[in-house]
């Protein structure tokens, strides 16, 4: 039996216009971005796009045969839904190639008001099986779904074969170890959550304190990590902190590794996914340029010879050098991680 290999599209992050241009220039097929409000899951200070910037970004991308997806992937609260619906309206008006949505009330809104705008299901919807995906397809006419980072490659292959949808998976960057959209750890500690506020472990709650030569990291006053003087400290995401459980101290939930799937790229091609997503809208244009360049080369090499493909050492080194924890994992994609 011969295996079919699908060459997936590279879906690249942009937190601002310079990052969008860097992603397109470095060979990204598609850029995803969000408006500067709580309507997207990377609602960080100094990040994201105004209407004018989205317009310019879409022009820049379309002139170079690249696409732009607009993320509207948090849940509106009960009162003022207009930042969410107007984000969808503007995305449609400016000619975005798709909107990425998690909330079904917003999916229904987009379907009714902008039937010709492609609707993608956000990872924030936590749809990790084909039964859920077909429901979203049937009821809300979605064309693509981004899978949560809790599935093995076998499970992804099965979803690709049984689902009528295009499937997009996370390939690189920060690793959510929890089911996105079903995690309230951040609001439990800080009051702000990805679902309601578009943030996890927000910067305003982070404090670094020197304590007898060690660096204490506090999130809203709660100690979530301690670093030795010679130890590199990554951004203090709650689930990657050090805690004590069952008499053992350490990274109880996950070490501060980044996701890197370069080594399993032929399996990803064989699974039949349509999109490879690179995380990192909060990162700089230099990071985006470097990571997208590496991935562009790797995807092209794999597409030309999937059997002979080996992840090059310099690609791995380049991704490790820019990753937040300085080390990588294939996460849930491989069974032994679980």
């Amino acid at each position: 039996m011969t295996t079919d290999y699908r060459k997936p599209e590279l879906v690249c992050p942009a937190g601002n216009l310079p990052a969008l241009k860097a992603a397109v220039d470095a060979g990204g097929d598609t850029v995803y971005l969000g408006f500067r409000n709580a309507s997207n899951a990377r609602n960080f200070e100094g990040l994201n796009f105004s209407r004018e910037e989205v317009e310019e970004g879409i022009q820049y991308a379309h002139d170079r045969n690249a696409r732009v997806f607009v993320a509207v992937n948090t849940s509106p609260g009960p009162r003022n839904i207009s930042p969410w619906t107007s984000s969808i309206d503007i995305a449609s008006e400016l000619g975005a190639d798709a909107v990425i949505i998690s909330d079904i009330a917003l999916l229904a809104y987009a379907k009714e008001n902008h039937p010709n705008l492609r609707r993608h299901l956000s990872v924030q919807a936590s749809a990790g099986n084909y039964e859920a995906l077909e429901f979203y397809a049937r009821e809300f006419g979605i064309q693509r779904a981004v899978l949560p980072r809790i599935l093995t490659l076998d499970a992804i292959r099965e979803i690709c074969s049984k689902s009528s949808l295009e499937i997009e998976i996370f390939a690189s960057g920060g690793l959510c170890v929890m089911a996105e959209g079903r995690c309230w750890l951040s609001s439990y500690i800080t009051g702000d959550s990805p679902n309601m506020n578009g943030v996890c472990s927000p910067a305003h709650a982070v404090r670094f304190e020197q304590e007898n030569g060690t660096l204490d990291v506090k999130l809203d006053g709660m100690l979530i990590n301690k670093f030795a003087p010679d130890e590199a400290a990554a951004y203090p995401t709650l689930c990657k902190g050090r805690f004590e459980a069952g008499g053992k101290t350490g990274h109880v939930m996950e070490a501060p590794y980044s996701l890197n799937t370069l080594e399993v790229l032929p399996e990803i091609f064989a699974a039949g996914v349509h999109g490879l997503k690179i995380e990192g809208r909060q990162r700089s244009k230099h990071y985006v340029r470097s990571v997208v360049s590496t991935w562009r080369e790797a995807v092209d090499v794999c597409a030309s010879d999937p059997h002979g493909y080996v992840a090059k050492k310099e690609w791995m080194a380049s991704l490790n050098a820019t990753s937040e924890g300085g080390a990588h994992t294939t996460g849930a994609y491989e069974d032994d991680w679980r």
């Binding site: 809790i150 170890v177 089911a179 995690c183 309230w184 109880v252 849930a332 069974d335 679980r338």
Partner: peptide, 21 residues
């Protein structure tokens, strides 16, 4: 107790030095 989150990883198994499998 508030059920705050889910993962693919089993933390109970992990704390006993075992894998989910």
């Amino acid at each position: 107790h508030l059920p705050l989150t889910f993962s693919a990883r089993c933390y109970t198994a992990r704390s006993h030095g075992l894998s989910k499998q």
